[in-house]
């Protein structure tokens, strides 16, 4: 898989399809870091592990580059989905982005609780099947029980928060300037632990229909709060009610943005008289 990725990257650079390939490099001190490969010779040091989301960095690079700068990003499934969500939000110009999609291993998918451990545009590696997060023992243990038990569990967990903003900063799609989490109107400033309902749930809900379940928030959290679990229920609802998943393609908009007639949910029925109203509307 590594050799194949290197070949694709080399080809892209030699044919000048992109100004640079963005991936991970093992540097001279044996440390792995994100790197812009501009010279094909440098690709010798390219590596694919560990999991490292590059979408947000790629967005920053593209934003601060001249207009015709094209970037080829080596990305896993979640990274590709994040890039697509950023395209949808007009943060990345579609024309300026190429992807080299690589598949994740079964072990990685199990660690990430990932239901799609491969990009839609797969260039190197073999697809493995995803994991249903709701079948996972850790998730089940955390989310079962009645409201009272769940509330206690989350409250205990979220009280550990040291308000480092790591969850926000690491999320590839959390990009607003200014951020509501830094605004006193919404979240009390200068208190630790962060206000539970506002800080955590405002963040979680802003990502409701755009979270690609990459798990970066959770991995960044220094006190091990299972932040991904906050998103799972909403992702499930979007899939079951509207057949929607974030980040699969740049054209499909979130159902939350459209009228219920264009994108009805599967278990809501409209009475007949509403259809008659619709016809009047349209005529």
């Amino acid at each position: 898989m590594l050799e194949k990725t290197k070949n694709i990257a080399r080809q892209i650079l030699e044919e000048k399809k992109a100004s640079a390939v963005f991936g991970l490099m093992r540097n001279e001190w044996n440390i792995i870091q994100p790197h812009l490969f501009e010279d094909p010779a440098g690709l010798a040091n390219l590596v694919l592990e560990p999991k490292w989301l590059l979408a947000k960095l790629a967005m920053r690079i593209l934003r601060s580059s001249p207009e015709n700068y094209k970037l080829a990003v080596i990305c896993r499934g979640c990274d590709e989905r994040a890039l697509i969500e950023l395209i949808k939000r007009n943060q990345i110009e579609k024309e300026n982005l190429l992807t080299i999609g690589i598949a994740c291993s079964q072990e990685q998918a199990a660690i990430c609780l990932c239901d799609r451990p491969y990009p839609e545009k797969l260039d190197a590696g073999e697809k493995v099947s995803g994991v249903d997060p709701f079948q996972d023992e850790r998730v089940r243990k955390f989310l079962i029980g009645n409201d009272k038990e769940r509330m206690k569990r989350w409250a205990d967990m979220l009280k550990r928060c040291i308000k480092c903003y790591g969850c926000r900063n690491s999320c590839p799609i959390c990009i607003c300037e200014p951020c509501k989490l830094e605004d006193d109107v919404w979240v009390q400033r200068g208190v630790v632990p962060a206000e539970t309902i506002t800080f955590h749930l405002i963040r979680a809900f802003h990502l409701s229909d755009t979270c690609v379940a990459c798990g970066a928030c959770q991995e960044a959290c220094p006190v091990n709060i299972p932040l991904l679990y906050l998103q799972l229920g909403m992702r499930k609802t979007l899939r079951e009610k509207y057949g929607y998943e974030a980040g699969l393609d740049p054209e499909t908009k979130s159902p939350v943005l459209s009228s219920a007639f264009e994108k009805p949910d599967t278990d809501r029925e409209f009475p007949d008289w509403i259809n008659s109203l619709r016809e009047e509307d349209e005529s």
């Binding site: 989350w154 906050l230 159902p255």
Partner: peptide
């Protein structure tokens, strides 16, 4: 649609 999604989050967190 949006508020129903928020209801989901409220359920997740108890």
């Amino acid at each position: 649609k949006r508020l129903e999604l928020l209801q989901d989050l409220l359920d997740t967190t108890g």
